[in-house]
């Protein structure tokens, strides 16, 4: 909140799916300790752009990314960058809660294990507990850490996924519509959590709900048909949008 350091910088990013030009010339700065919301109608490219930030688009064969995305001055699309290392620094939470069909403990411990972040079982236990506490799930699951993660309710599962993502101690946390599969109570819990999380991470959230964007974010980027139409302070975007398309969207005329 106080710091305004830039965590990631995107410059003239273009994304193509085969012949389809999905993202056109997007420039965005992701600030540290800030929640940045990407809003826009379906198919506008906000999720695609989010997935560029941790190179999840690499898994799609026909997807090509041009331009550069800098993280602390280094282009993450540099051929020398291993996406596996990048994803340890840029965690991700998906639209549908997708815990591994393993125990709650193993879900959270998986990231630290494969990255070799802990040296002993005790240390790993500590990381799991810390992550679950930060994800506001510890109190609910501390007695059944070895029960399957898939047995939790939808909202708990999503918080488990958040715990899993922050267990590797990332610098940026990407969230792709994290509340779209949740009921209002679970949504409120997750939103509260997001607000907590920004004290430690740069959070980027894609959302369909403008109310949610207004509630949780400090910065908002509005995407339309693959273009970044407007990017600025959330308050400013929602009260005095500069672009007529933004205004139409937030007042519900396009979407």
């Amino acid at each position: 909140m106080t710091t305004e350091t830039t965590k990631m910088t995107a410059r003239s990013v273009q994304v193509f799916y085969g012949d389809n030009h999905a993202i056109k010339d997007v420039d965005v700065d992701i600030l540290d300790n800030t929640v940045t919301a990407f809003i826009g109608p379906s198919g506008c490219g906000k999720s695609t752009f989010l997935r560029c930030l941790n190179r999840m688009n690499d898994t799609i064969d026909i997807c090509r990314v041009q331009g550069e995305i800098l993280m602390q001055g280094e282009n993450i699309y540099d051929p020398r960058v291993d996406p596996v290392q990048l994803r340890a620094k840029v965690g991700m939470v998906f639209q549908k809660p997708n815990p591994f069909p393993k125990s709650i403990y193993d879900n959270v411990a998986y990231g630290p294990k494969i990255h070799g972040l802990t040296r002993s079982k005790a240390e790993l236990d500590e990381v799991v507990e810390k992550s679950l506490r930060r994800a506001a799930l510890w109190a609910e699951v501390k007695d059944r850490l070895h029960a399957p993660g898939t047995g939790l309710s939808g909202g708990q599962q999503q918080r488990l996924c958040i715990a899993r993502a922050i267990a590797t101690n990332p610098e940026v946390l990407l969230m792709d519509e994290p509340c779209s599969a949740l009921d209002p109570i679970a949504t409120a819990q997750v939103e509260e959590l997001i607000d907590e999380l920004r004290t430690q991470f740069a959070v980027v959230i894609v959302t369909h709900s403008m109310q949610q964007a207004a509630r949780v974010s400090q910065r908002t980027a509005f995407f339309h048909l693959g273009n970044l139409v407007e990017y600025g302070e959330t308050g400013q975007i929602f009260t005095t949008p500069r672009d007529p398309r933004t205004e139409s969207y937030i007042t519900g005329r396009i979407g």
Partner: peptide, 8 residues
């Protein structure tokens, strides 16, 4: 996705 997302 979940596995790749945590950096596997």
């Amino acid at each position: 996705d979940a596995a790749l997302g945590v950096g596997a």
